[in-house]
């Protein structure tokens, strides 16, 4: 099946095999491997993307239903040359270890900062509770976003 959608601002056409998820199509058909596959049941947030502006798990979006949709992946948040403030804050705070959860956190945190530029610790914990990190214990991620919030307030 052919699906036309917008990904990171670019019109894209994807060949969608069967009932696969948007995550599979992003990674395998559209050469955007930044979104990670770690659980395929919406329990880890590693595949977080913005889907028509809302934060969702790409593994739970049926790709065949994406015709006409607007998708933003981690590749559309910032680039190596122009990091998003959330990306820079995470680097500065030491919030990256193995990095597998990081793209999902970047997308979710960027969305959080966009909707609530000055979240407190409780807001950050709740907003990012759908993104599991196994390496950092979340402390450095919290400090990264608190520093951003402090800068914004």
């Amino acid at each position: 099946m052919i699906v036309e959608l917008t990904v990171n601002g670019e019109p894209r056409v994807a060949t969608v095999p069967g009932s696969v998820s948007l995550l599979t199509v992003l990674r395998d058909e559209l050469a955007l491997p930044g979104s990670k596959n770690a659980c395929e049941q919406g329990e880890c947030g590693s595949c977080s993307v913005l889907f028509d502006g809302e934060l969702v798990c790409a593994c739970l979006v049926m790709a065949a239903d994406c015709d006409g949709s607007d998708v933003v992946t981690v590749e559309g948040i910032g680039t190596d040359e122009h990091l998003h403030p959330v990306q820079q804050a995470m680097l500065d705070a030491g919030a990256v270890q193995c990095g597998f959860c990081t793209p999902g956190f970047v997308v979710a945190a960027a969305r959080l900062i966009e909707t609530n530029p000055t979240p407190d610790a409780g807001d950050i914990r709740e907003a990012l509770a759908g993104n599991v990190c196994r390496c950092t214990g979340y402390g450095a991620i919290l400090r990264a976003l608190e520093s951003l919030a402090k800068g914004a307030s």
Binding site: R27, L32, P33, G34, S35, K36, N37, T73, V74, E75, I77, G78, T79, D80, L83, Q87, M90, L91, D92, G94, V96, G99, F100, T102, P103, V106
Partner: peptide, 21 residues
């Protein structure tokens, strides 16, 4: 010193290649 990870930037931008990629 608390230096930056050399693999930090590709990891935050999604460009770091894991085995699954």
């Amino acid at each position: 010193e608390s230096t930056m990870r050399p693999d930090g930037i590709p990891k935050v931008t999604g460009n770091f290649a894991f085995a699954s990629d």
